[in-house]
Design a binder for these strands. Structure first.
Lengths: 159, 159
DNA sequence: GCACATTGCTTGACATCCTCAACCATTGAG
DNA sequence: CTCAATGGTTGAGGATGTCAAGCAATGTGC
Protein backbone atom coordinates (compact mmCIF):
# COMPACT_ATOMS: atom_id res chain seq x y z
CA UNK A 1 0.00 0.00 0.00
CA UNK A 2 2.62 2.45 1.02
CA UNK A 3 4.23 3.97 -2.04
CA UNK A 4 7.31 6.12 -2.04
CA UNK A 5 5.35 9.30 -2.58
CA UNK A 6 6.77 11.67 0.04
CA UNK A 7 4.44 12.51 2.91
CA UNK A 8 3.27 16.08 2.74
CA UNK A 9 3.99 18.22 5.76
CA UNK A 10 0.94 20.33 5.25
CA UNK A 11 -1.56 20.25 2.43
CA UNK A 12 -1.31 23.98 1.82
CA UNK A 13 2.26 23.47 0.70
CA UNK A 14 1.12 21.11 -2.03
CA UNK A 15 2.87 22.31 -5.22
CA UNK A 16 0.48 22.05 -8.23
CA UNK A 17 -2.67 23.76 -6.89
CA UNK A 18 -5.87 21.72 -7.28
CA UNK A 19 -8.89 23.37 -8.79
CA UNK A 20 -11.11 24.53 -5.91
CA UNK A 21 -13.54 21.95 -4.59
CA UNK A 22 -17.22 22.81 -4.90
CA UNK A 23 -19.85 21.94 -2.29
CA UNK A 24 -21.40 19.47 -4.77
CA UNK A 25 -18.08 17.71 -5.29
CA UNK A 26 -17.62 17.38 -1.55
CA UNK A 27 -21.18 16.15 -1.14
CA UNK A 28 -20.48 13.37 -3.65
CA UNK A 29 -17.12 12.58 -2.12
CA UNK A 30 -18.72 12.31 1.32
CA UNK A 31 -21.19 9.82 -0.15
CA UNK A 32 -18.29 7.65 -1.26
CA UNK A 33 -16.44 8.09 2.05
CA UNK A 34 -19.55 7.15 4.05
CA UNK A 35 -20.08 4.09 1.85
CA UNK A 36 -16.46 3.04 2.23
CA UNK A 37 -16.55 3.55 5.99
CA UNK A 38 -19.67 1.42 6.38
CA UNK A 39 -18.24 -1.24 4.11
CA UNK A 40 -15.26 -1.55 6.45
CA UNK A 41 -17.52 -1.48 9.48
CA UNK A 42 -19.84 -4.13 8.04
CA UNK A 43 -16.85 -6.37 7.34
CA UNK A 44 -15.57 -5.95 10.90
CA UNK A 45 -19.01 -6.73 12.34
CA UNK A 46 -19.53 -9.72 10.04
CA UNK A 47 -16.26 -11.09 11.35
CA UNK A 48 -18.12 -11.58 14.61
CA UNK A 49 -21.32 -12.82 13.08
CA UNK A 50 -23.02 -9.45 13.47
CA UNK A 51 -24.85 -7.26 11.04
CA UNK A 52 -23.86 -3.66 10.41
CA UNK A 53 -26.77 -2.44 12.49
CA UNK A 54 -25.89 -4.74 15.38
CA UNK A 55 -22.31 -3.52 15.28
CA UNK A 56 -23.42 0.09 15.19
CA UNK A 57 -25.71 -0.43 18.13
CA UNK A 58 -23.01 -2.03 20.24
CA UNK A 59 -20.63 0.78 19.37
CA UNK A 60 -23.07 3.37 20.64
CA UNK A 61 -23.10 1.78 24.07
CA UNK A 62 -20.02 3.57 25.38
CA UNK A 63 -22.20 3.84 28.49
CA UNK A 64 -25.63 2.43 29.29
CA UNK A 65 -28.33 4.14 27.26
CA UNK A 66 -32.09 4.04 27.21
CA UNK A 67 -34.05 2.49 24.36
CA UNK A 68 -35.19 5.97 23.42
CA UNK A 69 -31.67 7.30 23.35
CA UNK A 70 -30.60 4.43 21.10
CA UNK A 71 -33.51 5.04 18.76
CA UNK A 72 -32.48 8.67 18.50
CA UNK A 73 -28.83 7.86 17.86
CA UNK A 74 -29.78 5.23 15.29
CA UNK A 75 -32.39 7.49 13.67
CA UNK A 76 -35.09 4.85 13.71
CA UNK A 77 -38.39 4.00 15.36
CA UNK A 78 -38.29 2.82 18.96
CA UNK A 79 -39.99 -0.43 17.99
CA UNK A 80 -37.08 -1.23 15.70
CA UNK A 81 -34.70 -0.92 18.63
CA UNK A 82 -36.77 -3.47 20.55
CA UNK A 83 -35.95 -6.07 17.92
CA UNK A 84 -32.31 -5.13 17.58
CA UNK A 85 -31.77 -5.27 21.34
CA UNK A 86 -33.68 -8.58 21.50
CA UNK A 87 -31.22 -10.14 19.09
CA UNK A 88 -28.17 -8.68 20.87
CA UNK A 89 -29.55 -9.78 24.25
CA UNK A 90 -30.05 -13.23 22.79
CA UNK A 91 -26.34 -13.27 21.97
CA UNK A 92 -25.47 -12.14 25.52
CA UNK A 93 -23.86 -8.99 24.17
CA UNK A 94 -26.18 -6.57 25.99
CA UNK A 95 -28.58 -6.62 28.88
CA UNK A 96 -31.69 -4.61 29.68
CA UNK A 97 -31.73 -2.96 33.08
CA UNK A 98 -34.60 -1.10 34.74
CA UNK A 99 -34.00 2.55 35.53
CA UNK A 100 -34.29 3.18 39.29
CA UNK A 101 -35.63 6.69 38.72
CA UNK A 102 -38.25 5.94 36.10
CA UNK A 103 -39.95 2.57 35.75
CA UNK A 104 -40.88 3.26 32.17
CA UNK A 105 -37.23 3.36 31.12
CA UNK A 106 -35.02 0.40 30.21
CA UNK A 107 -31.30 1.04 30.09
CA UNK A 108 -29.22 -1.05 27.75
CA UNK A 109 -25.69 -1.93 28.82
CA UNK A 110 -22.93 -3.99 27.29
CA UNK A 111 -22.04 -7.29 28.90
CA UNK A 112 -18.39 -8.29 29.32
CA UNK A 113 -18.74 -10.24 26.11
CA UNK A 114 -20.26 -7.21 24.46
CA UNK A 115 -17.34 -5.05 25.51
CA UNK A 116 -14.87 -7.58 24.12
CA UNK A 117 -16.81 -7.66 20.89
CA UNK A 118 -16.76 -3.87 20.54
CA UNK A 119 -13.01 -3.76 21.16
CA UNK A 120 -12.50 -6.43 18.56
CA UNK A 121 -14.69 -4.65 15.97
CA UNK A 122 -12.86 -1.38 16.56
CA UNK A 123 -9.49 -3.04 16.17
CA UNK A 124 -10.57 -4.61 12.87
CA UNK A 125 -12.09 -1.37 11.70
CA UNK A 126 -8.91 0.52 12.51
CA UNK A 127 -6.79 -2.00 10.66
CA UNK A 128 -9.04 -1.57 7.64
CA UNK A 129 -8.54 2.20 7.68
CA UNK A 130 -4.77 2.23 7.58
CA UNK A 131 -4.66 5.44 5.55
CA UNK A 132 -5.80 7.33 8.65
CA UNK A 133 -2.64 6.21 10.41
CA UNK A 134 -0.54 7.27 7.49
CA UNK A 135 -1.69 10.88 7.68
CA UNK A 136 0.57 13.19 9.70
CA UNK A 137 -0.63 14.55 13.04
CA UNK A 138 -1.00 17.93 11.37
CA UNK A 139 -3.17 16.51 8.58
CA UNK A 140 -5.38 14.56 10.95
CA UNK A 141 -5.86 17.62 13.11
CA UNK A 142 -6.77 19.67 10.07
CA UNK A 143 -9.14 16.96 8.84
CA UNK A 144 -10.86 16.81 12.23
CA UNK A 145 -11.29 20.57 12.32
CA UNK A 146 -12.70 20.67 8.80
CA UNK A 147 -15.10 17.80 9.42
CA UNK A 148 -16.23 19.51 12.64
CA UNK A 149 -17.08 22.58 10.62
CA UNK A 150 -18.66 20.68 7.76
CA UNK A 151 -20.81 18.72 10.23
CA UNK A 152 -21.16 20.94 13.29
CA UNK A 153 -23.67 18.69 15.00
CA UNK A 154 -21.23 15.78 15.07
CA UNK A 155 -18.43 17.74 16.71
CA UNK A 156 -19.03 16.86 20.34
CA UNK A 157 -19.81 13.18 20.86
CA UNK A 158 -22.01 12.09 23.73
CA UNK A 159 -19.62 10.37 26.11
CA UNK B 1 -28.77 28.35 12.08
CA UNK B 2 -26.15 30.87 11.16
CA UNK B 3 -24.76 32.40 14.32
CA UNK B 4 -22.56 35.46 14.50
CA UNK B 5 -19.42 33.41 15.11
CA UNK B 6 -16.88 34.86 12.67
CA UNK B 7 -16.01 32.57 9.76
CA UNK B 8 -12.41 31.46 9.83
CA UNK B 9 -10.43 32.11 6.69
CA UNK B 10 -8.20 29.09 7.04
CA UNK B 11 -7.92 26.53 9.80
CA UNK B 12 -4.20 26.99 10.22
CA UNK B 13 -4.86 30.49 11.47
CA UNK B 14 -7.00 29.09 14.24
CA UNK B 15 -5.59 30.66 17.42
CA UNK B 16 -5.54 28.12 20.28
CA UNK B 17 -3.90 25.03 18.73
CA UNK B 18 -5.91 21.81 19.06
CA UNK B 19 -4.33 18.73 20.53
CA UNK B 20 -3.34 16.45 17.64
CA UNK B 21 -6.05 14.15 16.33
CA UNK B 22 -5.42 10.42 16.67
CA UNK B 23 -6.47 7.83 14.08
CA UNK B 24 -9.00 6.46 16.59
CA UNK B 25 -10.57 9.87 17.12
CA UNK B 26 -10.88 10.33 13.38
CA UNK B 27 -12.33 6.86 13.00
CA UNK B 28 -15.02 7.76 15.52
CA UNK B 29 -15.63 11.14 13.99
CA UNK B 30 -16.03 9.53 10.57
CA UNK B 31 -18.65 7.24 12.08
CA UNK B 32 -20.63 10.28 13.19
CA UNK B 33 -20.10 12.07 9.88
CA UNK B 34 -21.25 9.02 7.91
CA UNK B 35 -24.31 8.70 10.14
CA UNK B 36 -25.13 12.39 9.72
CA UNK B 37 -24.65 12.24 5.97
CA UNK B 38 -27.00 9.26 5.62
CA UNK B 39 -29.54 10.89 7.91
CA UNK B 40 -29.67 13.87 5.55
CA UNK B 41 -29.76 11.58 2.54
CA UNK B 42 -32.58 9.46 4.03
CA UNK B 43 -34.59 12.61 4.70
CA UNK B 44 -34.11 13.80 1.12
CA UNK B 45 -35.13 10.40 -0.26
CA UNK B 46 -38.14 10.14 2.06
CA UNK B 47 -39.31 13.48 0.69
CA UNK B 48 -39.95 11.57 -2.52
CA UNK B 49 -41.39 8.49 -0.92
CA UNK B 50 -38.13 6.59 -1.33
CA UNK B 51 -36.03 4.65 1.13
CA UNK B 52 -32.37 5.40 1.72
CA UNK B 53 -31.38 2.37 -0.32
CA UNK B 54 -33.64 3.36 -3.20
CA UNK B 55 -32.17 6.86 -3.17
CA UNK B 56 -28.65 5.49 -3.10
CA UNK B 57 -29.36 3.19 -6.00
CA UNK B 58 -30.80 5.96 -8.14
CA UNK B 59 -27.81 8.16 -7.33
CA UNK B 60 -25.39 5.52 -8.59
CA UNK B 61 -27.02 5.54 -12.02
CA UNK B 62 -25.03 8.48 -13.39
CA UNK B 63 -24.94 6.23 -16.44
CA UNK B 64 -26.60 2.87 -17.19
CA UNK B 65 -25.08 0.08 -15.13
CA UNK B 66 -25.44 -3.66 -15.03
CA UNK B 67 -27.11 -5.46 -12.13
CA UNK B 68 -23.70 -6.84 -11.20
CA UNK B 69 -22.13 -3.41 -11.19
CA UNK B 70 -24.91 -2.10 -8.94
CA UNK B 71 -24.49 -5.02 -6.55
CA UNK B 72 -20.80 -4.22 -6.32
CA UNK B 73 -21.33 -0.50 -5.74
CA UNK B 74 -24.01 -1.22 -3.13
CA UNK B 75 -21.91 -3.95 -1.48
CA UNK B 76 -24.75 -6.46 -1.46
CA UNK B 77 -25.81 -9.72 -3.05
CA UNK B 78 -27.00 -9.62 -6.64
CA UNK B 79 -30.36 -11.09 -5.65
CA UNK B 80 -30.97 -8.10 -3.38
CA UNK B 81 -30.49 -5.76 -6.34
CA UNK B 82 -33.18 -7.69 -8.22
CA UNK B 83 -35.70 -6.65 -5.58
CA UNK B 84 -34.50 -3.07 -5.29
CA UNK B 85 -34.64 -2.59 -9.06
CA UNK B 86 -38.07 -4.26 -9.17
CA UNK B 87 -39.42 -1.65 -6.80
CA UNK B 88 -37.78 1.26 -8.63
CA UNK B 89 -39.00 -0.09 -11.96
CA UNK B 90 -42.48 -0.34 -10.49
CA UNK B 91 -42.26 3.39 -9.74
CA UNK B 92 -41.10 4.12 -13.31
CA UNK B 93 -37.85 5.53 -12.00
CA UNK B 94 -35.60 3.04 -13.81
CA UNK B 95 -35.84 0.59 -16.67
CA UNK B 96 -34.08 -2.65 -17.43
CA UNK B 97 -32.43 -2.87 -20.84
CA UNK B 98 -30.82 -5.93 -22.45
CA UNK B 99 -27.15 -5.60 -23.27
CA UNK B 100 -26.60 -5.99 -27.03
CA UNK B 101 -23.20 -7.58 -26.50
CA UNK B 102 -24.13 -10.11 -23.82
CA UNK B 103 -27.64 -11.47 -23.40
CA UNK B 104 -26.97 -12.46 -19.80
CA UNK B 105 -26.54 -8.83 -18.81
CA UNK B 106 -29.31 -6.37 -17.91
CA UNK B 107 -28.40 -2.70 -17.87
CA UNK B 108 -30.31 -0.42 -15.56
CA UNK B 109 -30.95 3.14 -16.68
CA UNK B 110 -32.82 6.06 -15.17
CA UNK B 111 -36.06 7.13 -16.78
CA UNK B 112 -36.80 10.86 -17.23
CA UNK B 113 -38.75 10.70 -14.01
CA UNK B 114 -35.81 8.98 -12.36
CA UNK B 115 -33.48 11.75 -13.49
CA UNK B 116 -35.82 14.40 -12.12
CA UNK B 117 -35.99 12.52 -8.83
CA UNK B 118 -32.21 12.31 -8.52
CA UNK B 119 -31.86 16.05 -9.20
CA UNK B 120 -34.46 16.76 -6.58
CA UNK B 121 -32.81 14.52 -3.97
CA UNK B 122 -29.44 16.13 -4.62
CA UNK B 123 -30.87 19.61 -4.25
CA UNK B 124 -32.48 18.65 -0.92
CA UNK B 125 -29.34 16.95 0.24
CA UNK B 126 -27.25 20.01 -0.63
CA UNK B 127 -29.62 22.30 1.21
CA UNK B 128 -29.31 20.05 4.25
CA UNK B 129 -25.53 20.29 4.17
CA UNK B 130 -25.27 24.05 4.27
CA UNK B 131 -22.05 23.98 6.28
CA UNK B 132 -20.26 22.69 3.17
CA UNK B 133 -21.22 25.90 1.37
CA UNK B 134 -20.03 27.97 4.28
CA UNK B 135 -16.48 26.60 4.08
CA UNK B 136 -14.05 28.70 2.03
CA UNK B 137 -12.79 27.38 -1.32
CA UNK B 138 -9.44 26.82 0.36
CA UNK B 139 -10.98 24.74 3.15
CA UNK B 140 -13.07 22.64 0.78
CA UNK B 141 -10.05 21.96 -1.38
CA UNK B 142 -8.05 20.96 1.68
CA UNK B 143 -10.88 18.76 2.93
CA UNK B 144 -11.16 17.03 -0.45
CA UNK B 145 -7.42 16.38 -0.54
CA UNK B 146 -7.40 14.98 2.99
CA UNK B 147 -10.41 12.75 2.38
CA UNK B 148 -8.78 11.52 -0.84
CA UNK B 149 -5.77 10.50 1.18
CA UNK B 150 -7.75 9.05 4.07
CA UNK B 151 -9.85 6.99 1.64
CA UNK B 152 -7.69 6.48 -1.45
CA UNK B 153 -10.10 4.10 -3.14
CA UNK B 154 -12.88 6.70 -3.19
CA UNK B 155 -10.79 9.40 -4.85
CA UNK B 156 -11.78 8.81 -8.47
CA UNK B 157 -15.50 8.16 -8.90
CA UNK B 158 -16.71 5.95 -11.75
CA UNK B 159 -18.29 8.41 -14.18
C1' DG C 1 -16.86 -27.71 -32.91
C1' DC C 2 -17.87 -29.60 -28.57
C1' DA C 3 -17.90 -30.32 -23.57
C1' DC C 4 -17.50 -28.27 -19.50
C1' DA C 5 -16.78 -24.17 -16.43
C1' DT C 6 -18.16 -19.80 -15.31
C1' DT C 7 -21.09 -15.81 -15.27
C1' DG C 8 -25.43 -12.89 -14.92
C1' DC C 9 -29.77 -12.74 -13.27
C1' DT C 10 -33.63 -14.56 -11.03
C1' DT C 11 -36.38 -17.30 -7.69
C1' DG C 12 -37.25 -19.06 -3.16
C1' DA C 13 -36.44 -19.44 1.73
C1' DC C 14 -35.38 -17.19 5.69
C1' DA C 15 -33.56 -13.55 8.83
C1' DT C 16 -33.09 -8.68 9.86
C1' DC C 17 -34.51 -4.14 9.54
C1' DC C 18 -37.92 -0.43 9.30
C1' DT C 19 -42.35 2.24 9.87
C1' DC C 20 -46.89 2.80 11.60
C1' DA C 21 -50.69 2.07 14.70
C1' DA C 22 -52.23 0.60 18.95
C1' DC C 23 -51.69 -0.70 23.66
C1' DC C 24 -50.26 -0.61 28.64
C1' DA C 25 -47.59 1.06 32.53
C1' DT C 26 -45.64 5.00 34.28
C1' DT C 27 -44.59 9.81 34.97
C1' DG C 28 -45.57 14.82 34.27
C1' DA C 29 -48.61 18.89 34.20
C1' DG C 30 -52.16 21.55 35.81
C1' DC D 1 -57.12 13.97 41.01
C1' DT D 2 -57.59 13.99 36.01
C1' DC D 3 -55.72 14.12 31.78
C1' DA D 4 -51.59 14.47 28.67
C1' DA D 5 -47.41 12.71 27.47
C1' DT D 6 -43.75 9.33 27.54
C1' DG D 7 -41.20 4.70 27.23
C1' DG D 8 -41.33 0.38 25.54
C1' DT D 9 -43.62 -3.32 23.37
C1' DT D 10 -46.61 -5.95 20.12
C1' DG D 11 -48.45 -6.77 15.62
C1' DA D 12 -48.87 -5.97 10.72
C1' DG D 13 -46.75 -5.23 6.59
C1' DG D 14 -43.05 -3.84 3.46
C1' DA D 15 -37.97 -3.34 2.36
C1' DT D 16 -33.49 -5.17 2.68
C1' DG D 17 -30.08 -8.73 2.94
C1' DT D 18 -27.80 -13.46 2.46
C1' DC D 19 -27.53 -18.05 0.74
C1' DA D 20 -28.60 -21.85 -2.32
C1' DA D 21 -30.32 -23.36 -6.53
C1' DG D 22 -31.70 -22.99 -11.27
C1' DC D 23 -31.58 -21.45 -16.15
C1' DA D 24 -29.75 -18.98 -20.16
C1' DA D 25 -25.72 -17.28 -22.03
C1' DT D 26 -20.83 -16.79 -22.62
C1' DG D 27 -15.93 -18.26 -21.97
C1' DT D 28 -12.29 -21.72 -21.95
C1' DG D 29 -9.70 -25.50 -23.38
C1' DC D 30 -8.94 -29.31 -26.21
Amino acid sequence: MSSNVPMLDTVHQNPPPDPPATPIELMDQLARVAAAYYRHFAAAAAGRGLTLMQGKTLSLLTRPRSMRALAGLLSCDASNVTGIVDRLEGRDLVRREPDPADRRVKNIALTDEGERTVRSIRADLMSGLTALEQLSDQDRTTLRALLDRAFPDTAVPPA
